[in-house]
Structures are given as C-alpha cells and as structure tokens.
Amino acid sequence: MINTKDVKFNARHFKLAGRLFFPENFDENTQHPALVVSHPTSADMNQTSSIYASKLAENGFLALAFDAAYQGQSEGEPRYIEDPANRTEDIMYAIDYLVTLPYVDAERIGAMGICAGGGYTINAAKVDKRIKAVAGVAAASSGQAYREAFGPDDKLIETLEQMGRQRTIEARGGEPMITPWIPSNAEEVKAAGITDIDVIEAVDYYRTSRGADQFSPNKVRYTSLPLMLGYDPTLLIEKLLTQPLTLIVGDKPGSFGSYRLGYEVYNRAGSKEKELTVLPGISHYDLYDQPKAVNPAVEKLTEFFNKYL
C-alpha cells in the first residue's frame, strides 16, 4: 500500500507545497533513491504528476510531486505566474528538500516531468548535476508552444508590445489581467473553430471531471507570458545535458509540440546514454492519465530509473 505525506519546503522567499509518495514497506532507516516529479503548465500536483508519482512509488521509488511557485497550494504572490526560471529552480528546491531527508540517498536522485514539466526538468538538469537521471513524458517547451501559438514573428512582436503596455498599466496601479490557459469548455472550442488535438484534449482533461481540480483554476497572469516567450529548454543541451536521459512521446502530434521536442532533445542532447520511446496511437493527453499510455510509460520509467539510480 502506498502511503503519502503532504509537506512544505523552502523556496527562495516562501514555501512550496509537495506530496511524498512512499513505496510499500518503506524503511526510513535505509537510504533510498528518490524522484522529483514536475507537473505541466496550468496543472497542480493533484493531477497527472501524482498519477506518475504514485505509480513509481508502487514500483519501489520514493517520489515527490509538488506545486509550482505562485500556483496551486504553494505560496508566492502575485498568483498565477508561470515563470520558466522559477519553474526550473522549483525543481532544485525540491532536491534541496530531498537531500535533507535521512532516508534519501543524495547520490541517487532522478527527475521527471510531464508536458512543460518535462521541459523544465531538462532545463534544470543542464545545470543541477545532483539530478543523476532525467526523464520527460510528453515533454514540451512552453516557450516554443506559445511562440508558435502567437503566430509569425511580426505578430509575436506585436503581442509582446501589447504585453508590455499591460505591464505598464499594472505598474501604474491598474487591474492585473488574468487570462485562461485554455478554453473553458468544449462549446468554446467549437465556437472558436479549434481543431488541434492538443487543445481539444486539454479541455477534456482540465475542464471536465476527468482531471479538473480546485487548485488548477485555468488562470495565468498575462504579464508573465513574455517570460515563457523568451524561454528555450534546448539551449546548450549539446554541452550541458549529459545525464542518462529517457523521453516518452505519443505518435499523434499536436500544437504543444511534445512529439517534435522528443526527437529534437534526443538528437541534440549530450547524454551518452539516451533513449526515445514513441508509443503508437497515443496522444499528448493520453500520457496524462490513460492506462493504455501511462502503464507502458511507467514501465519504461521504472526500467530506466532502476538502471541509472
């Protein structure tokens, strides 16, 4: 039986909320390998990251899922910020916490993430070599996805100028602009004429009983979006991403780019031990919670972390 423990741990100026998942018959007098599991954008630890943390605990790993700074049950003001630098450092703070636990072997810490959490994990692993093995499940670059969502370069620059004007408004005391990550329901998707599989399935996951959670309210602070637009987790991966690496994607590509990023990171990473698993007939959001995708992904992750931790 898997036991869990809700925890708070230090970030730079405030606390992050996390949940430890313990393997069956856990012995606190023995040092164990441990995993940090990072959630996608717009998500929280109660959703897909806890699914993976729980299943990896069932397979013998101590796993820590947590909420990003400024989001979910973690602290940080103003709320609803998505900052890739913070998201990257959150992973480092999670490791800082794990290495203080007497039952964690600091030389056997791995990290994985789903969707943008996978991109942030790759970004962290480039500079934090306490991460001994790196995994991405449908890993995506929030920067790439949003740069492409806003269209051609001239449109992107126009959007950045608009975001700058909104930041000036807020600096002068105006109301903050909070926008939705995705449409609120299937009716909005249809009305907007959206046909992209990733957006359609995102709404089905986050905005229905399938995956909806009170701490994942579909809100993002508009003025934090430029922080994503300038972010690229693949920068310098040829030189800096050297740990053993596994990437798992489905072969049904969508606009969030995990299929493409999987190949790019696999081909460019400096890791000597690396592998890419492409699951046939699987979409990005199948890998969030659908057994036909999650089960083979967990099997691959278990094999990988057992080998390298």
Rank of each mutant, 00 (worst) to 15 (best):
residue 2 I to T: 10
residue 3 N to L: 14
residue 4 T to K: 05
residue 5 K to N: 11
residue 5 K to P: 03
residue 13 H to C: 01
residue 16 L to R: 05
residue 16 L to D: 05
residue 22 F to Y: 15
residue 23 P to E: 04
residue 23 P to H: 11
residue 27 D to L: 13
residue 28 E to H: 15
residue 33 P to N: 09
residue 33 P to G: 06
residue 36 V to A: 08
residue 37 V to H: 08
residue 38 S to F: 02
residue 46 N to P: 02
residue 47 Q to G: 01
residue 53 A to Y: 07
residue 53 A to D: 06
residue 57 A to W: 12
residue 57 A to H: 08
residue 59 N to I: 07
residue 63 A to Y: 10
residue 64 L to N: 08
residue 65 A to R: 02
residue 68 A to S: 13
residue 68 A to E: 00
residue 72 G to N: 05
residue 74 S to P: 03
residue 74 S to Q: 05
residue 76 G to T: 02
residue 78 P to F: 12
residue 79 R to H: 05
residue 79 R to Y: 00
residue 81 I to E: 11
residue 82 E to Y: 12
residue 82 E to C: 05
residue 82 E to L: 02
residue 83 D to S: 12
residue 86 N to H: 12
residue 89 E to A: 15
residue 95 I to F: 03
residue 97 Y to I: 00
residue 97 Y to G: 02
residue 97 Y to Q: 02
residue 98 L to M: 04
residue 101 L to Q: 11
residue 105 D to S: 01
residue 110 G to I: 03
residue 115 C to M: 04
residue 115 C to E: 06
residue 120 Y to F: 14
residue 121 T to L: 12
residue 122 I to K: 04
residue 124 A to L: 07
residue 126 K to P: 02
residue 127 V to N: 13
residue 128 D to F: 11
residue 131 I to E: 08
residue 131 I to R: 07
residue 133 A to L: 06
residue 141 S to R: 06
residue 146 Y to L: 15
residue 149 A to G: 07
residue 151 G to Y: 12
residue 153 D to S: 14
residue 153 D to H: 15
residue 155 K to V: 12
residue 156 L to M: 13
residue 167 R to K: 15
residue 168 T to E: 15
residue 173 G to I: 05
residue 177 M to F: 08
residue 178 I to T: 10
residue 182 I to C: 01
residue 184 S to M: 13
residue 189 V to L: 01
residue 191 A to I: 00
residue 192 A to R: 14
residue 195 T to M: 01
residue 195 T to P: 00
residue 197 I to L: 07
residue 198 D to E: 02
residue 204 D to M: 13
residue 210 R to T: 08
residue 215 F to K: 11
residue 215 F to D: 12
residue 216 S to D: 05
residue 218 N to R: 03
residue 228 M to L: 13
residue 232 D to Y: 12
residue 234 T to L: 03
residue 237 I to V: 15
residue 240 L to T: 09
residue 240 L to H: 09
residue 242 T to E: 12
residue 245 L to D: 04
residue 246 T to F: 05
residue 248 I to D: 05
residue 249 V to N: 09
residue 253 P to Q: 06
residue 253 P to S: 05
residue 255 S to V: 13
residue 260 R to W: 10
residue 261 L to E: 15
residue 268 R to G: 03
residue 269 A to K: 06
residue 272 K to H: 10
residue 274 K to Y: 09
residue 280 P to K: 14
residue 281 G to I: 07
residue 282 I to K: 06
residue 284 H to T: 05
residue 287 L to P: 01
residue 290 Q to R: 15
residue 295 N to P: 00
residue 297 A to F: 07
residue 298 V to L: 02
residue 299 E to T: 11
residue 300 K to Q: 13
residue 300 K to G: 04
residue 307 K to E: 03
